[in-house]
């Protein structure tokens, strides 16, 4: 572990904390523009977090200590995920501690905590949201794993850093399998981050909501942590997608200059990605919850196809 590596790691974490709410704000802003609404300011997420952190926590009757610790665990999970995903450089001291499968596990741990916390209060909405969340997660995780296996097959490693390094620093080759995996990953990201075709983060309509239903009872700094964790999750997924499918501009070794040059590149890619996300959310309508399994089934199918195409077409050529 070198000093530069340590610095890079710290920078990545700080950057995640700074950029994540900004990304959420940016997506909301783009969405408002595209839907001909007047947009909230870019920093709206920060204002929200600031307000929430200052407010007192109100706990419902009958909540256990689990309810109070869950936000911290969730926030910790997401921060760890952001630290593992190579955003600026592939030389990350934390990276050896967890490979891609563990990364999926970290997301899974956060999901379990948020669902259990939602059920802990004992209201019907919380239970309903928790169940729906588990349904989505149960279908999305295999698809995500399949996507990751495809990339892992290409780079012969399950370590995120190695995968990204292989993908970023190779000759230009068309991988049909990556195209399949990319589409599948996009599908999964929409489902996992509660975006429009699966869930709408902007409404509290009881028939349809998933994520919002689980956090109805949270308030004050707990809610702030969960909101921040949600932003971090979106950020982590975006960075993972960018690192796997558009890996250009990520610094390879211990090169401080490359590290600095990677920041504007990352911001640019995130901006484009956010606008793309907002565009998709605008042109799609939210689907019925019963169609969500089909949506994620398609994602899984595409990921498996990517894997098969990889095995058939690309191994022997």
């Amino acid at each position: 572990m070198t000093v530069a590596g340590l610095f890079g790691q710290l920078l990545a974490i700080v950057l995640a904390l700074v950029l994540a709410p900004l990304l959420t704000g940016w997506v909301n802003q783009c969405r408002a523009w595209m839907q001909n609404r007047s947009a909230p300011p870019l920093l709206q997420s920060y204002y929200m977090l600031h307000k929430l952190f200052l407010k007192d926590v109100v706990l419902a009757h009958g909540t256990s200590s689990f309810f109070r610790t869950a936000p911290y665990v969730i926030f910790g999970c997401m921060l760890l995920a952001c630290a593992i995903v190579p955003t600026l450089s592939t030389d990350l001291p934390l990276a050896p501690s967890a490979d891609t499968i563990a990364l999926v596990g970290v997301f899974g741990l956060a999901r379990i905590f948020i669902s259990l916390a939602a059920m802990d209060i004992g209201t019907s909405f919380g239970t309903l949201g928790g169940r729906r969340e588990m349904l989505i997660g149960f279908l999305a995780e295999p698809a995500l794993l399949m996507v990751i296996f495809t990339t892992a097959l290409i780079s012969q490693s399950t370590s995120v850093a190695t995968i990204v390094e292989t993908l970023a620093h190779r000759d230009f080759v068309i991988y049909p399998s990556l195209a399949f995996a990319g589409v599948a990953f996009t599908f999964v990201s929409f489902a996992e981050n509660a975006r429009v075709p699966v869930d709408n983060p902007a409404t509290h309509l009881e028939l349809t909501m998933i994520h919002e239903a689980m956090i109805l009872e949270y308030s004050g700094r707990h809610l702030a942590l969960i909101e921040l964790a949600a932003s971090l999750k979106l950020y982590a997924y975006s960075c993972l997608g960018l690192a796997l499918f558009f890996p250009w501009g990520i610094a390879a070794g211990e090169n401080p200059l490359g590290l600095l040059a990677a920041i504007p590149m990352l911001v640019f890619k995130l901006a484009v990605g956010g606008a793309f996300l907002a565009g998709i959310e605008t042109i799609n309508a939210k689907m019925r919850i019963f169609r969500a399994p089909e949506f994620l089934g398609t994602a899984f199918l595409l990921a498996v196809l990517g894997l098969l195409v990889r095995l058939l077409l690309e191994t022997r050529v």
Binding site: R170, D171, V173, I174, P176, S177, A179, F180, L301, L302, L305, V309, L313, E314, V317
Partner: peptide, 24 residues
């Protein structure tokens, strides 16, 4: 991997799209 000619890559890509269309 890098020795694969572009045409073969294109053919593979097209073949994958055909498979995708079959599923679609």
């Amino acid at each position: 991997m890098s020795s694969v000619p572009l045409s073969a890559q294109l053919i593979n890509l097209f073949a994958s799209v055909i498979l995708l269309m079959a599923f679609a």
